[in-house]
Design a protein around this nucleic acid. Structure first.
Length: 340
DNA sequence: CATCCGTGGCA
DNA sequence: TTGCCAAGGAT
């Protein structure tokens, strides 16, 4: 009987699996569901390199799901600062509390899917990796590998249905967790978006796109929209070794995160250029930052000896600003304000 | 199905 | 420098 795609891939994985902090070695028992869940949420649209230090820090500070469930939400938000997509952090707390209340992680894909922050991908990944369930795990890596393996010409995202059917067809009944991680490792290291390394690929003999000569052109993707440019201001108000910080609204860009006050810029429009209090404002420069769907030119204005502005906020000691948990945009602005 | 939601690395 | 891309989810 001929070796299947999954046999070849699992053999390759046994020899070449990446060693990652949240991962068990091939053939050893599954890692704790808490570690699998935490890493999978952090890895949503985020690179392995970016996740590693956050995973280690979270695990050291909150060693299990009960500890995380007991943490104040704002502590988790601050610890997440810099990792992006901050709704993940709020859903992480909600999910931890639901799991702690339940007493354990659900083990089936459909039950996992009901938890906050767990969509089709993450629920399948946890079921397969933590609980050895057969689940069809489809992320961007799997989409790319499968689109090439079967030479699926239909563009994304319309091709997702066909890709799922093809992925299902090659997913084995046993070792589905290792299979999923092997597909992702293959996509990350061999079957890469640009210049796939087919000479090193354990699936090259079966790959239809390679047989046709130009696997790198798949999967076809719909063209992207241009990002509008927005302009805004942010305000560094300093008084007696402290800076005035606010908490952003729970929804929208950087929702729920601690921040410098600003003039109300957002994805749809530029800011009002109205400072939060009258006074002498000096420009410290401009921060350029690109979000998922718009770019921002943020002018940083500073005021020394600023008086207490109207509205909610707090004076934060500047020498411990690192612990405020500012998202990257405002961390850049703060750095600029202090450099001048 | 489309839009909103971060960030850093890389060619 | 600019654009592309990454272990997606919620609405």
């Amino acid at each position: 009987m001929a070796a299947t795609v999954s046999d070849n891939l699992l053999d390759w994985y046994d020899a070449h699996a990446r060693e990652l902090p949240w991962r068990a070695k091939p053939g050893t028992p599954s890692p704790e569901p808490y570690r699998v869940w935490l890493s999978e949420v952090m890895l949503q649209q985020t690179t392995v390199a970016a996740v590693k230090p956050y995973f280690e820090a979270f695990l050291a500070r909150w060693p299990n799901v009960e500890a995380l469930a007991s943490a104040p939400e704002e502590d988790v938000m601050a610890a997440w600062a810099g990792l992006g997509y901050y709704s993940r952090a709020r859903n992480l707390v909600k999910c931890a509390r639901a799991v702690a209340e339940l007493g354990h992680f659900p083990e089936t894909e459909s039950d996992l899917r009901r938890l906050p922050g767990l969509g089709a991908y993450t629920a399948a990944a946890i079921a397969a990796i933590a609980f050895e369930k057969r689940a069809v795990v489809v992320d961007a890596n799997v989409e790319r590998v499968v689109a090439r393996l079967f030479a699926i010409e239909e563009p994304l995202p319309a091709a997702r249905k066909a890709i799922r059917i093809a992925a299902d067809a090659i997913t084995p009944d046993m070792r589905a967790g290792d299979f999923a991680q092997a597909m992702m490792d293959l996509g990350a290291t061999i079957c890469t978006a640009r210049d796939p390394r087919c000479l090193l690929c354990p699936l090259s003999n079966a790959c239809k796109a390679r047989a046709e000569g130009d696997p790198g052109r798949l999967p076809v993707k719909a063209p992207k929209k241009a990002k509008p440019l927005r302009q805004g201001q942010t305000y560094w108000m300093e008084n007696d070794g402290a800076v005035w910080l606010v908490r952003r609204p729970g929804t929208g860009i950087l929702g729920g995160m601690r921040a410098l006050p600003d003039d109300g810029w957002n994805a749809r429009s530029s800011g009002s250029m109205q400072a939060p209090s009258p006074g002498i404002w000096e420009s410290a420069g401009v921060v350029r930052h690109t979000f998922t769907h718009f770019s921002l030119e943020l002018t940083v204005l500073t005021s020394l000896g600023a008086s207490q502005p109207d509205g909610q906020g707090e004076w934060w000691p500047i020498d411990s600003l690192d612990e405020a948990g500012l998202p990257t945009l405002f961390a850049k602005a703060a750095r600029l304000a202090q450099s001048g």
